[in-house]
Computed example of a mutant assay.
Amino acid sequence: MSTVKPSKINRLLKLQPSGVVLISSWLTEQGYSPELLRKYRNSNWLTSIGTGAMIRENDQVNYLGAIFSLQQQLGLNIHPGAKTALSLHGKAHFLDFAQQQVYIFGHSKENLPRWFQKYDWGVKVNYYTTSFLPADEGMTTIRKDNFELSISSPARGLMECLFIAPQSQDLMECLQIMQGLNNLHPKQIQRMLERCTSVKVKRLFLYLAETCGHTWFKYLNLEQIDLGKGNRSLVKNGVYIPKYRITVPQEMQKDESPEL
């Protein structure tokens, strides 16, 4: 005969929306002891997905439901970023997601829990910790299934793409993404670029925006944006762009000859 009190288990199941992970340390803070949680598992109310994490029995949880829990239960800044955020915004529908990869970003020193790393989410997880932008800069909230999730805005998503380029992100794809960002707000972009600490990201972002001829680019005050010193060679045998002191792939400047 089960010793689980229906009222308490019902309250637990209402604490969080369906489709998310229930993290043991957070549940303990809510008054659910390890012994009680073990009873819930034995009674098939909860199922373990790794040390310190559970889901409702028969609940369908994907990586987004796990990220929700990291944000809401642990207070972490870990979020969908780069192309994954752009896809969630509907801004990257033309990109190739055949390999089913997702890009997740956290602020410096924020690590993915072991249960998150070990669990099979059905996608390849690429995780990056960065501090080139403040944790709260350029973030937005979307509704996904039964919960709200904090993700990168389209502008921050592109900046994250540029941060991992060219090693983990194709620069020509970044150009394609920028072409679709014609409705950005110059005041917000100005603030992001002023607070951004990556010279590479700022130079590439401005170069791509100017190349695409976006109207909002004209309202940026480049004198207030620190673009650093020296040259940045991003690719071999590329084209040097004197204004931004960067070397980009030749296909970005088809009408220009590379400077040696």
Rank of each mutant, 00 (worst) to 15 (best):
P258N: 09
A66S: 14
L175D: 10
G75A: 07
S131G: 03
E137Y: 01
L175M: 11
P34F: 12
W26D: 12
K229R: 13
S2D: 13
A85Y: 02
R191M: 11
L27K: 02
Q99S: 14
E194Q: 15
N237P: 00
C161Y: 03
G180N: 07
T141I: 15
M54S: 12
R245C: 09
K39S: 13
T197D: 15
A98K: 11
L12A: 12
K254M: 13
P242F: 10
E57P: 00
Y32S: 05
E35N: 07
E259C: 05
D170E: 15
F68L: 07
L64S: 04
K144L: 13
K5Y: 06
R143N: 13
W45V: 01
Q100Y: 09
S168F: 13
N221E: 15
I142G: 04
P242M: 11
Q60R: 14
S233W: 04
N221C: 05
L27R: 00
C161T: 05
S69T: 08
I104L: 09
I241Y: 01
D255I: 08
L158H: 07
W115Y: 08
G138T: 07
S153V: 06
I177T: 01
L70Y: 05
T28Y: 08
F147E: 03
Q188K: 12
S108T: 10
K14W: 01
S150G: 06
T130E: 15
E35K: 10
Q73C: 01
S43A: 15
L206Q: 06
I177E: 01
C196D: 02
R195Y: 01
Q224E: 12
I241A: 01
Q188S: 12
T197H: 11
S25T: 15
V20K: 03
Q190P: 01
F97S: 12
E223Y: 09
K91C: 15
S233A: 06
W216C: 02
S7Y: 09
L260D: 13
Y40S: 02
N183W: 03
Q167H: 11
K118M: 11
A98E: 12
Y128V: 15
T247S: 15
L95F: 09
G31I: 09
N237A: 12
P80Y: 00
I49K: 08
P186A: 08
G180C: 00
L74C: 14
P134M: 03
M252E: 06
G230K: 05
P249G: 09
S153A: 14
I104A: 04
N221W: 04
L86T: 06
G52V: 14
S153R: 02
I142S: 07
A209N: 02
A135N: 03
Q99M: 13
G50P: 06
L74I: 11
L162P: 05
N42R: 11
F105D: 00
N44H: 14
G75N: 08
A66V: 09
T84H: 12
T247C: 14
K109P: 02
P80G: 02
G19I: 10
K124V: 11
I104D: 00
Y40Q: 00
S233L: 04
R203E: 03
K14G: 04
P249C: 09
G65Y: 08
K124W: 03
V239E: 00
E194F: 00
L37K: 02
P242Q: 11
D145E: 15
M252V: 10
F132Q: 07
H93L: 15
K187P: 03
